[in-house]
């Protein structure tokens, strides 16, 4: 079982979506959640504070989710962070691109708390190995 104090950063340009993800995480027992409205905001927050997990949208202004993922993977202090992509981009090429860029998981919107739970558990299990 994952640590309920796991600190999440939820990245999405839609405030409603951030709110929903925050509530779904709460339902799964994770209440330590911060928000960022795009990739740039997220990177600043990740570099200023210690986080354990990133849940990011793809399509955002300033810096997209895939650019954020690449930036995380090339940053020595952040590259080990698990990054779950949560996005409406359901094209195969998007999923392949995310996987190649080092995404830890990929959830297509719309999704449920159950889907999120399943993906998180899978990532936590991989992290323990």
């Amino acid at each position: 079982m994952a640590d309920p104090n796991t600190k999440f950063l939820v990245v999405d340009d839609f405030s409603t979506m951030r709110r929903i993800v925050r509530n779904l995480l709460k339902e799964l027992g994770f209440t330590n959640v911060q928000e960022a409205e795009d990739g740039v905001d997220a990177l600043n927050k990740l570099r200023a504070d210690k986080f354990d997990f990133v849940v990011s949208d793809w399509n955002m202004p300033n810096m997209t989710g895939i650019e954020l993922l690449r930036a995380i993977r090339t940053d020595a202090s952040l590259k080990h962070l698990p990054v779950l992509m949560v996005t409406a981009e359901a094209k195969k090429e998007n999923i392949i691109e995310a996987a190649q860029a080092g995404a830890s998981g990929y959830v297509v919107k719309p999704f449920t708390a159950a889907t999120l739970d399943e993906k998180l558990k899978k990532i936590f299990l991989t992290m323990q190995k």
């Binding site: 839609f14 409603t16 979506m17 929903i20 509530n23 779904l24 719309p110 999704f111 449920t112």
Partner: peptide
């Protein structure tokens, strides 16, 4: 709550 994702 989950249904509000339609907004996105």
């Amino acid at each position: 709550m989950e249904a509000q994702e339609f907004r996105d």
